[in-house]
Structure formats: C-alpha cells, structure tokens
C-alpha cells in the first residue's frame, strides 16, 4: 500500500435536485467505484449531496496561469460584449 499511492480523483457534488454539480475536493481511490464510495464517506457525511461525480484528476486539463494576461485581459475593454452597452428603443418592452 505505502510503496504505491492510489490515483487522485476530483469529486463533484450536487447538493440539491436541479442545481449544478460543484467541485467539492479530491481524494485517493483505486478505481471509480471506490472513489464514489470514498466521496460518500468524505464529502457527504452531513447531508451535503444527492449526487456524486468523480473524475480521475489526470483527465482534467487546466489553463495555464502564466497565460492569464493574454487569455482574459483583452476582454477588459470590450464593453460592447455586454448587453447593457446598447441603447434600446423605447418601443421595446420586456427586456
């Protein structure tokens, strides 16, 4: 057991019917079935959930924080991407 760690899994819990699954944390497990059981014991002890998703952490692809400037900053000065930028004609109701 100690010479080889079990893989890491990310856990997503849906707290109520109709809501989205939210990232709850991560844990170790030998396979998907065990990951769900472990998630039940680690993250839903206090009635936190009605549904559990797990995904092995290595399958998550993340954006690179170093590229944040080029990825997100350009959106900063493009106010026309927000609907509030546009003046609506008075005749238009229910917007």
């Amino acid at each position: 057991m100690h010479e080889q760690q079990w893989p890491l899994w990310e856990v997503f819990i849906r707290s109520k019917q109709g809501l989205d699954h939210k990232h709850a944390g991560s844990l170790h497990a030998a396979d998907a079935a065990m990951a769900i059981e472990n998630a039940r014991d680690v993250y839903t002890r206090r009635m936190e959930g009605v549904s559990i998703w797990v995904v092995e952490s290595k399958f998550i692809h993340a954006s690179n924080p170093d590229e944040a400037a080029s990825l997100y900053d350009p959106a900063n000065d493009k106010v026309y991407r927000h609907p509030t930028f546009y003046d609506l004609p008075d005749e238009l109701k229910h917007m």
Binding site: M1, W6, L27, H28, A29, D41
Partner: peptide, 12 residues
C-alpha cells in the same frame, strides 16, 4: 486505517 479515506469510512 490503511488510507485516510478508508479510515473515515470505517470510523463512519
């Protein structure tokens, strides 16, 4: 327990 997650499971 042999691993944290199972320590919690059996304690539950």
């Amino acid at each position: 327990g042999p691993i944290l997650e199972q320590d919690i499971a059996l304690s539950n």
